[in-house]
């Protein structure tokens, strides 16, 4: 319909019934398989599922650590299973993809201006990567030393 309904009315009365019949295509359920960018977007969103599952595993691990003794021992045994190792490898890949996409997108949301110039996006993303490296190294060192 045109924005002014009275125009449509005028057209109808002066020229007969309107022949307009706008066609609205339906979005297929597989829309995200049609373009590489859409597929990668869904992969990025799915990373959160692996992160959440890991958080639950970490929580359970903390509970077992708190109980100690046999409970913690059996937790370690299940961590050594091929299923657990496999899961952690896959989850680590997805988590890494989350980190990379997150750091690369941060400069878009966080624009820091100095006068007329923008802080270069590479600098913002870059400092995130550096923080990632430093914090990861620190964590690994602290836990393995203990």
């Amino acid at each position: 319909m045109s924005r002014d309904p009275s125009v449509d009315e005028q057209l109808e009365t002066s020229m007969g019934k309107s022949m307009r019949k706008p066609y609205t295509p339906k979005m297929p359920a597989t829309w995200w398989l049609r373009r590489r960018a859409y597929f990668l977007f869904i992969v990025r969103e799915v990373t959160s599922v692996f992160v959440a599952i890991y958080c639950v595993i970490l929580l359970v691990g903390l509970c077992r650590l708190k109980e100690g003794g046999d409970a913690f021992e059996s937790f370690l045994v299940s961590l050594r299973s091929p299923f657990s190792i496999g899961f952690h490898v896959v989850a680590l890949l997805f988590a890494g993809y989350h980190s990379i996409t997150w750091f690369n997108l941060t400069p878009k949301a966080m624009v820091i201006r100095i006068g007329e110039e923008k802080v270069p996006p590479l600098l913002i993303a870059g400092s995130n990567y550096v923080a990632w490296l430093v914090l990861s190294a620190a964590l690994i060192w602290i836990v393995l030393k203990g």
Partner: peptide
Amino acid sequence: VGECSVVCPKDVDPAG
């Protein structure tokens, strides 16, 4: 998703 900024012919960066 970010595709809007990818296709924009004027580099408006609507996603940003």
